[in-house]
Design a protein around this nucleic acid. Structure first.
Length: 457
RNA sequence: GGAGGGGUGGCCGAGUUGGCCUAAGGCGGCACCCUGCUAAGGUGUUACUCGGGCAACCGGGUCGCGGGUUCGAAUCCCGCCCCCUCCGCCA
């Protein structure tokens, strides 16, 4: 794979444009509208694979009406422009005639203003409907209503056979004194946890290891803001559909990021990238904040589902023709982390009904957790094709000079809490101690095992 | 938070007494020509986007964002965002 230097994109993409600020009205490109126009049945069929299709008929109807209005209004504008130019002439030769012409154009302007209000209403409804349409799934994605149609692509590693009961991490971690759920809940509520001592260090070691691991494969490490504005959220597809699941800083209209994908993808919003510098690959550590509004009562114990967690995220920007090869490569990079940690996992190709709304194709990596006796999703790797690029205005310049939408991808590499679960439950010994994987020991001053404390605090 | 300066096409950068700005020029890119040597030169071309059209092409919009004045706004007025300098405050 092509190695990049940290400075490779700066000259081409330095953002002299004002950053994507709230209040900007960059509209969703109507390119995908053209696709809907030219092949409404094909689009409808593909959207159906993901679930119920809403708003498509309304969208098509509005589009026809909007375009009719546009033709009318643009004709008037053309008239106004030519008449205005004539007035400049008349003012020099026949002032009286100029006054008459002014009155005429003024009337035209008023008519224009009325029609513009209608058009604007349609346009904004069209945009809203477009922003709510999910991405269409790739042909290679298995069609199915739910997780039952997911395909196990491969499995790696064998769960260690042990002659003692492997207890869940919330018992193991508490006994080791490295997980403190009670105090997390005390200071922030249920779903927040405090890592202590070797647990805190272990998490930090995991983050550092993963960043180094990906950096060695050619990713540029970035450390973005952990909040993002509405525009960035809309660009990556969190808004409008998932707004209710995010923490919001009301005074600033900012959101706590639900994933590093948001700020890192937004890095190149409203930019035209140089084709020859692609792919751009980034890796970022960020915390992630999720309200988990629809998940009350699910996975309430332990680290499986928490409101705040850490994650190392990979994000890639590619040419359209390269994105599916990139997807496979990103999956392999995420897998390589689990392999380095010697954790057994499987790779799932998600079905149309189970995958994310924004994705064209998605793989999940699930690690085996013997304590809770479950496969846990530690990574989700997705190709968004041009879905996010269209919303965000991420394009590339072809050698031919043409500007076209880029493809974006991302994948966890990995999510920390569930990785921690797997380490605790797979590395557990009969005495309650936990083995530290070889690759992490340099980050922990050589620590090879976490032992139960002599006395509890 | 206060004062001042600024935001123009992939990049740099002219343009603010409103009207051939239908945005100069340069860089970069692309095409061709010349040239025989790890180079340079010449000519042409090159913003994005929407609508109409098979197409050539025609028309609309876009000079940070939104609104206003006007027959007409990059240019004038108002609000907001961002960047820079100085002051204040502060990790």
């Amino acid at each position: 794979m092509q190695a990049r230097t940290a400075s490779s994109w700066t000259s081409a993409t330095r953002c002299s444009c004002s950053p994507a600020t709230a209040g900007s009205t960059r509209r969703a490109s109507l390119l995908d509208l053209k696709r809907i126009r030219s092949d409404p049945d094909g689009v409808r069929e593909k959207l159906r694979r993901k679930g119920e299709v809403t708003g498509l008929d309304r969208l098509i109807e509005l589009d026809v009406r909007h375009r009719e209005g546009l033709r009318e209004i643009e004709g008037w504008r053309a008239q106004r422009n030519t008449r205005s130019r004539e007035i400049a002439e008349l003012l020099r030769r026949e002032p009286d005639a100029a006054e008459a012409a002014k009155a005429e154009v003024r009337a035209l302007g008023e008519r224009l203003r009325e029609r513009e209000a209608d058009l604007e209403a349609w346009r904004s409804e069209i945009e809203d409907l477009l922003l709510r349409l999910p991405n269409t799934p790739h042909e290679s994605v298995p069609v199915g209503a739910d997780a039952a149609s997911n395909v196990v692509v491969r499995t790696w590693g064998d769960p260690p056979r042990r002659n003692f009961e492997v207890r869940p991490h919330w018992e193991v971690g508490v006994e080791l004194g490295i997980l403190d759920f009670e105090r997390g809940a005390k200071l922030a509520g249920s779903g927040f946890v405090v890592l202590r001592g070797a647990g805190a260090r272990l998490q930090r070691a995991l983050i550092a290891f993963m960043l180094d691991h990906h950096r060695a494969a050619g990713f540029e490490e970035v450390s973005p803001p952990f909040v993002a504005n509405r525009q960035a959220m809309r660009g990556s597809g969190q808004i409008p559909k998932m707004e209710a699941d995010m923490y919001r800083v009301e005074s600033e209209d900012l959101f706590l990021i639900p994933t590093g994908e948001v700020p890192v993808t937004a890095l190149h919003a409203d930019e035209i990238l140089d084709e020859q510098r692609l792919p751009l690959r980034y890796v970022a550590y960020t915390p992630c904040f999720r309200l988990e509004a629809g998940a009350h009562g699910r996975d309430t114990r332990g680290l499986i589902r928490v409101h705040q967690f850490d994650k190392v995220e990979m994000v890639a920007f590619t040419r359209p023709e390269d994105s599916y090869a990139e997807l496979e490569w990103l999956v392999s990079r995420a897998e390589s982390v689990l392999q380095a940690l010697a954790l057994p996992y499987r790779v799932l190709l998600l079905s149309t009904g189970d995958m994310g709304a924004n994705n064209a194709k998605q793989y999940d990596l699930e690690v085996w957790a013997p304590g809770v006796q479950r496969w846990l999703e530690v990574s989700s790797v997705s190709n968004f094709e041009d879905y996010q690029a269209r919303r965000s205005g991420i394009r590339l310049r072809r050698r031919s000079g043409e500007a076209t939408l880029a493809h974006t991808l991302n994948g966890s590499g990995l999510a920390l809490p569930r990785t921690l679960i797997a380490l605790l439950e797979n590395g557990l010994g009969p005495d309650g101690s936990v083995v530290v994987p070889d690759v992490l020991r340099p980050y922990l001053g050589g620590l090879a095992r976490i032992d139960p404390p002599q006395e509890r605090t």
